[in-house]
Each structure stands twice: as structure tokens, then as C-alpha cells.
Amino acid sequence: MATMILPRSAQHVSASSAVSHLPDGTEAVAEIAAAIGTGADMYTVFVSAGYDLDAVGAALKQHFGDRVIGCTSSGNIGPNGYDRSGICAAGFTGGGLRIHTTAVGPLDDTATAVEQAGSALAAMRAELGDDGEGFAILLTDGLTRNEDLLAANLMAALGDVPIVGGSAGDDLTFSHTAVLHDGKFLANTATVTLVRADAPFRLLRLQHHDLTDTVLVATEVDAGRRIIRQFNGRPAASAYAEAVGADLAEIGPITFSTHPLLLKAGGSSWIRSIAAVNEDGSLNMLARVDTGDVLRLGRPVGMLDKLAERFDAVGAELGSIRAMLAFDCILRRLEFEERGLADEVGAFLAEHQAIGFSTYGEQFNGMHMNQTLVAVAFG
């Protein structure tokens, strides 16, 4: 088991983190609790595939009570950097940190679920007051295919409260993802955690793909199921393969992570990643695309440079980064692995106190996206 302990103080949010690779979930949680203690103000936990989630949930409730949030993952970010297995947890303490969590679901009807949680969300927003400093952490089932609507509706409900979060994963098996609430891992559910802090913090969003001049217009889609059937009036998979200069039979996860699609909206670009090619030549997407959306092919640029520049800028704003909660798309890690950079990027994240997990999608304010790192850094 690897452990990272950071200094604690009343003026700053600090974190202690640990990862356990014990195969028994109850024993793994006990090992983590022994390493990081049970007196923190907020705990986060991310569970890779293969664990008995009922046992893990019960153990987390026993050790950390109602101060813990978490979900299943496609690998974790912890004291070892990227870690494809095990359970990773962190305890955040100090800086006037207070949290309040509510569950939102079932997510089959996202708008209704958010509406039903309206009074709880309004009470959370009221806790901040007019001058309160805080943000919301959104963790959601990564297989419901409705994070776009969820993030937008939650942003409307919470008003000016910034949102950061990620979609639960299951190591690319796409069979079962779940979020933790009250000692249980629940599918078809999201949790929203309002975090109030007196210490300074910054939310950040980072992607390392730039727009190219190659345009693909979504001319036939099934938006609700996140399927693109045609680009520019042609079968979507064939049009995409031609755009990246590959044979249709050759395209797969590495192609998708290297050449994602970007949508321009709100003065910025947002990645819409491809999940898979269907037998009929359509494409399964990891974010919503609507008919008529103009997408541009992306190209990777300065992976490590962009990461270092962004972290340096945030560190300069905060004085230093003392703790960070990070949500990092699984496709980013796959691309780093393909290019032999995963160990270096993972070490960089660990050096900057990042704790988090590899996601099936990321949320930043009212937007859902892919192949992006979103995080909250505490100074």
C-alpha cells in the first residue's frame, strides 16, 4: 500500500491519501482507514473494477460515516500516479471545509430527478449565502448517457455555484457503474456535494487537443442514445475514418483518443469522444451530439506542456497547490499509455497532490465533455 501524507493546518485545505490493492474490499478499506485516519472533514474514494461493492460500501460507512463520497472507476489517480487497480481514498481537512451531499435519481428521467431534488438543492445553495465561497462536486453513473442534461439542469438549479465532477467508470467493460451514497453503491444515480471552504480554491479544465480545419457535420443522429448515424450525409464511421486517414477496420479506442471530435460552444471548444463503431457503421458517442452540430477533428498538442503550464498558472494564483481533487478521462490515460507518457504524467499529478479517478466523462459547470481533465485545486 502506498500512502501520501501532506501537512495539515487550520488555514488551508490539506489531504492525506492512500491506496490499497488488497482483494477483499472490507480489508482494503480498513487498511486505508488505518493509513489516513477517520477524522477528516471530507473523504473521497474511488473503486476500480472487481470489488464486492456491497462490502466496500458498508466498510466505508463504518469508517467514515456520512463524510465520504465516491464511485466506481476505470482506474485511479493517487500517491502512485495512475493506478489501474485497487481502491484509492483521500481525506481532506482544514480551511473551514464543510460538505453537504444529496442524491439525485433515478436518472432515467433526468429533468424530473433534478426537479424532485429541487428543495434539497435549494437548501444547499442557501447554505452558501450571498457571499459564500463554495462549489459542487458531481459524481454520476457513467452509463446512463444523460450527463449532458444532468449538468445543465443542475447548473440551472444551483445558480452561480460552480460544478466540477466526473462520470463513474468500470475499466472499459461498460457493464456496471455506480456512485456511493449512504453506504451503498447505486446505479442510475448521481450525488451532488456542496463544498464550502474558507481556504482559497480554483476550478480548472484542461484538454490537449486543438481544432483542425477538418469539419464533420452531424446530419443524422439519435441524440438520446448518443449515436451519430451520418456525417456530411455519409455513414458516420466511414466519414470519420477517412477524415483521420485510416481504414475503417483499423479505427478503435487509440484512434478515438488521438483524434477526438470537438464542438465549439459558449466561446470555447468541448470534446465529444467516440466510444465505439456499431455494426451498421454508426458511432456510439460518450457525449451528446445533436443534428446539425458542426464538429471539428482534434489533434494532440503539447500534452505535458499544457499540463505543466495550467498547473503552474493555478499554483501561482493560489500561492501553491496543497491538495487537488481531479477527474481525468480514461481516454487521456489510454493516449498517454500509447505514447509511453503515462508514468510521467501520473508522477506529475502525484507531485501536485492530485487525487481522483479515470472517468467516463467530465462535468464542468453546466457542460459535459470527454477527454478532459477537470479539477478543484486548494491553495
Rank of each mutant, 00 (worst) to 15 (best):
residue 81 G to R: 12
residue 162 P to S: 03
residue 76 N to R: 04
residue 91 G to K: 02
residue 166 G to P: 08
residue 128 L to S: 09
residue 102 T to A: 13
residue 120 A to I: 05
residue 90 A to I: 01
residue 152 A to W: 06
residue 160 D to A: 12
residue 119 S to K: 10
residue 123 A to M: 14
residue 81 G to H: 11
residue 94 G to P: 01
residue 79 P to W: 10
residue 84 R to N: 13
residue 135 F to V: 03
residue 162 P to H: 03
residue 134 G to M: 05
residue 83 D to P: 01
residue 125 R to C: 14
residue 131 D to S: 13
residue 156 A to F: 12
residue 108 D to T: 05
residue 95 G to A: 07
residue 76 N to Y: 05
residue 84 R to K: 14
residue 138 L to M: 08
residue 89 A to L: 04
residue 148 D to I: 01
residue 92 F to R: 00
residue 108 D to E: 11
residue 78 G to I: 08
residue 134 G to C: 09
residue 159 G to M: 03
residue 118 G to F: 14
residue 127 E to A: 14
residue 136 A to R: 00
residue 117 A to T: 13
residue 105 G to P: 09
residue 123 A to E: 15
residue 117 A to I: 12
residue 98 R to C: 13
residue 114 V to S: 04
residue 118 G to L: 11
residue 140 T to M: 05
residue 139 L to C: 07
residue 97 L to K: 00
residue 97 L to M: 09
residue 114 V to K: 09
residue 78 G to V: 07
residue 99 I to M: 07
residue 74 S to L: 09
residue 159 G to H: 04
residue 83 D to W: 10
residue 82 Y to P: 03
residue 122 A to S: 15
residue 77 I to M: 13
residue 144 T to N: 08
residue 159 G to L: 02
residue 77 I to V: 14
residue 153 N to I: 02
residue 121 L to W: 06
residue 148 D to F: 05
